[in-house]
């Protein structure tokens, strides 16, 4: 009798039958292991949740009263017939890859990951395994990131230039992770940093768990271009071009995302400026991460899966695709997903 694989791919998400749990499921299940707090991975309605200690506060903040158990990075825990452990994914603070060991095999589910350290997230650690399930949001050789320091220098020059002309700078960025990474990377000596409500709330949660971030001020009533000339405003992409943003007058708008590497996307979004800064691995990052696992079999998910799988097969891997219903399932209020872009969850 052929034995069942350690993980199977179902219409509710990645399932571990032997352990009786799912990983980042998109429909309600009894037991969910959650890689990180982004809304396309941590969804409401599950019976029980397990996440890292550092990911838990944001998940609680977003999902309210849920049954959430926490686990430290590297801690091994027996669930059903398997042993699981969580390892840093470098995507956002608290994000994890999940390692599952059972029946003499090791599988790792990457969740979303980034190989370049960003000073806030626990740096990515490769985990040896037989089978690696890797995201490949930016799995094309056209996506190759500059070091964060170079992007920070560009950001500072843009902000300082606007401030010198008396203009506010509005920077679109996802509320969890990217927004905080940006505020930590820019030079606070240039001017005050203001935040949209969605960004401020998440920032407060992260500060409360001990992450050091520069002072920010929520841009509520009475805060505008007059009260804070030359400010940097960090807001979710969905807030750009709205009446909320109009209070800052003829501001300069920009968007920070890996998608900004493509001129067509940058032009379509109508922002003059795009900063290529992603919380996902680029082409070289994906390839080096996959190599470092030592895995022989790789399943890819999220992004240009068909192309990336063919590339991996060319490289001698046994490669497959995990279908996902993530893309376009929700366009939640914080707009972490951009339905304009294929498989874009940042």
């Amino acid at each position: 009798m052929p034995s069942e694989p350690l993980l199977t791919f179902t219409d509710r998400g990645i399932c571990c039958p032997r352990g009786g749990f799912f990983i980042d499921p998109w429909r309600p299940v009894d037991r969910a292991l959650i890689t990180h707090g982004h809304s396309d991975h941590a969804r409401p309605g599950h019976g029980a949740y397990l996440a890292t200690v550092a990911a838990a506060p944001v998940i609680r903040h977003r999902l309210g009263a849920i049954r959430l158990d926490t686990i430290a990075y590297g801690e091994r825990r027996r669930i059903g017939g398997v042993t699981v452990s969580f390892h840093p994914a470098g995507h956002v603070p608290g994000s994890a890859q999940i390692r599952i060991e059972g029946a003499g095999e090791v599988w790792v589910v990457s969740g979303d990951y980034k190989t370049e350290p960003d000073t806030l997230s626990e740096p990515f650690e490769p985990v040896a395994c037989h089978t690696f399930i890797s995201e490949c949001t930016f799995g094309l050789p056209v996506f190759r990131w500059q070091p964060q320091a170079a992007i920070a220098a560009d950001l500072n020059a843009w902000w300082a230039g606007n401030a010198a002309e008396g203009r506010v700078s509005i920077l679109g960025a996802y509320a969890l992770g990217k927004a905080q990474r940006l505020m930590a990377a820019v030079d606070p000596a240039i001017g005050p940093i203001l935040t949209h409500g969605a960004v401020e709330a998440t920032t407060a949660v992260l500060r409360a768990q001990g992450i050091t971030l520069p002072p920010t001020r929520h841009a509520g009533a009475g805060i505008d271009a007059k009260s804070h000339p030359g400010a940097l405003v960090i807001a979710p992409p969905s807030a750009l071009g709205t009446p909320w943003a109009a209070r800052f007058g003829p501001a300069s708008e920009a968007f920070a995302s890996g998608w900004m590497a493509l001129r067509g996307v940058r032009r379509r979004r109508g922002h003059g400026r795009g900063f290529v800064l992603s919380d996902h691995a680029d082409w070289d990052g994906l390839n080096s991460a996959i190599r470092a696992t030592g895995a022989e079999r790789v399943f890819v998910t999220h992004g240009y899966t068909a192309i990336f799988r063919r590339w991996l097969e060319d490289q001698g891997y046994d490669a497959g695709i995990v279908a996902t219903e993530y893309q376009g399932e929700t366009a939640d209020a914080e707009a972490e997903s951009d339905p304009a872009l294929p498989g874009t969850m940042e």
């Binding site: 050789p141 056209v142 493509l262 001129r263 240009y304 192309i307 063919r310």
Partner: peptide
């Protein structure tokens, strides 16, 4: 083939 696959996605 990979360069060819990238072209329609980048659009240029």
């Amino acid at each position: 083939w990979l360069a060819e696959e990238c072209h329609p996605i980048v659009g240029d």
